[in-house]
């Protein structure tokens, strides 16, 4: 049984993967509009990642037996 913090960590890892993909697309994309969409998407995912990481820290504090990131 996964604890909440472990689940959130999984989501976090997926989000980091997507952010990396979008950043790669933003690098290669030639069209300005599409590039802007990719890079702003990556930026906003970064904010979500920050929020979730804070939450994971708090959860680990509450469930210390599952610590480890």
């Amino acid at each position: 049984m996964l604890t909440v913090s472990a689940q959130v960590k999984q989501t976090l890892a997926s989000l980091k993967g997507v952010r990396a993909t979008l950043e790669t697309f933003a690098q290669i994309e030639q069209n300005n509009e599409a590039r802007e969409a990719f890079s702003s998407g990556a930026r906003e995912i970064g904010l979500v990642i920050g929020d979730l990481e804070k939450r994971v820290g708090l959860l680990e504090f509450q469930e210390p037996q599952y610590k480890g990131f």
């Binding site: 979008l22 969409a37 998407g41 906003e44 995912i45 904010l47 979500v48 979730l52 939450r55 708090l58």
Partner: peptide, 23 residues
């Protein structure tokens, strides 16, 4: 507070899905 944060994150991600989905 966590509930609000999660809901906000879900909203942000939904926006990104809408924006980049067609691409």
């Amino acid at each position: 507070e966590a509930k609000r944060m999660y809901a906000r994150s879900a909203g942000v991600l939904a926006d990104i899905v809408d924006q980049t989905g067609p691409l």
